[in-house]
Design a binder for these strands. Structure first.
Lengths: 231, 231
DNA sequence: CGGTCTGCTGACAGTTTATGGCAGCAGCGT
DNA sequence: ACGCTGCTGCCATAAACTGTCAGCAGACCG
């Protein structure tokens, strides 16, 4: 079985991703248990396969954030689900994530055989209406703040038009038909509050991490809901 | 570069999928330009990687419908888009496709490194409400009918509760928040009509292919719409 | 500028792996 | 029973991968 090599390449990718700083080839060679010369060849292989690895002389290697999926088998319906889902994201999510959805779809379509591409690129499946509301806030930054459990400072206008400024602890982001809603703990009210992204006037992500785990906040928030939501 | 082998395996998969009938190993060996012995080893490799290939003595090989994606690089946001999309499908689509969406998500999650899995398995992203309407019709069969351009016979109750029976040419399926809608040419009315899947009382897919291309029908239908929809 | 660290490529020998041919067994259909 | 086919083991050969050595180029520092 030729599993040794491809497995080593995946290990190399993971190792590379563990470091945030540039890593020298020598270190990578040691960690993957291979000679320096072979490591250079492995890097070249990964780059040839599309991995976004950058190497600079005198610095080392950096892997752009992302992930390489190993070869995977999808059934026809799973493929349809991925395609339909990506199409929905491309329509309903904020522009940046929508673009990512379209890109992912294009990548998948590019490797599909022609007869199977017909299944997906025609409008056999399509989702309803296009998103219309514009976000003033950077939803990507919000997602990142949630992931890193950062305090968010919001300049927010509620449904009555009252404008407030508050610090919140965001722990989840809900995608609805037309709006995206941040679930957060509000420092001002000392309670859970939700905020529509399109009503955010201005915002800032703080460097400080909020003092609780977002998964715990989510769990507690769920218990306050009448209708339980599933993951 | 060790690209020869994996490329050959992908070629083998495509070749195998071209045939609908069982194919003998000898034929596959010739088409991939490899000895019979090696072909058996290649088949074993593919099966080890999860390909659903079935071989029977005296018959040949059959590939169950599906597709194997080669190794692919996704950016962090593309991954989020795939995850969010699959999650939406798992909620909003009909049970069968929803299950496929959940399966696809699980497959992707299974190969993600732990730190990246945190990005997706928590509820950082989630979609609004769960689908509630029940379809009496088999939506999978409808999608298949569209793909194969088959005549569909519908027993349908409209919004006024009037029940009709008609033959239609389905060419697209729209996924909206709560309902799925079939776009079709109605033989009875000699015009385009749309049908909510949850109002279908009974249906049958005919063996006969309808006389026009579904892409053409879709194009013509688009021109009749006030608000143009994109692909 | 020179020195050092690093990425990168070429060449070559040793090792590993893949391949092809051969033989044999088992299951399916006639 | 017979032919066809999938499947596995064995082994010699062919292909590849790997490590060592060498050299060149770019980045950073003093």
């Amino acid at each position: 079985m030729p599993v040794a090599r491809s497995e080593r390449l995946l290990t190399l990718l993971q190792t590379l991703r563990r470091y945030r700083r540039p890593v020298t080839g020598t270190v990578l060679a040691q960690e993957t248990g291979v000679s320096l010369r072979t490591l250079y060849r492995d890097i070249a292989s990964l780059q040839a396969q599309g991995a976004m690895i950058e190497g600079e002389a005198g610095i080392g290697y950096v892997l752009k954030p992302g992930f390489m999926l190993p070869p995977m088998m999808f059934s026809e319906e799973e493929l349809e689900a991925l395609v339909l889902g990506s199409r929905w994201v491309a329509r309903a999510a904020e522009p940046r994530l929508a673009g990512a959805g379209a890109d992912a779809l294009a990548k998948i379509a590019a490797v599909l055989p022609a007869d199977m591409r017909e299944t997906i690129d025609s409008a056999t499946l399509f989702v309803g209406r296009k998103r219309q509301d514009e976000d003033k806030a950077d939803v990507s930054a919000i997602r990142k703040a949630i992931r890193l459990e950062r305090v968010l400072e919001l300049h927010y206008g509620d449904e009555q038009g009252r404008i407030s400024r508050r610090r919140v602890w965001p722990f989840a982001l809900g995608y609805f038909e037309h709006v995206r809603i941040i679930m957060a703990w509000c420092e001002l009210r000392q309670d859970f509050r939700h905020f529509r992204t399109d009503r955010i006037i201005d915002m800032a992500v703080h460097e400080t991490r909020y003092p609780r785990r977002r998964t715990v906040l989510l769990k507690e928030w769920r218990e306050t809901q009448d209708v339980p939501l599933e993951t």
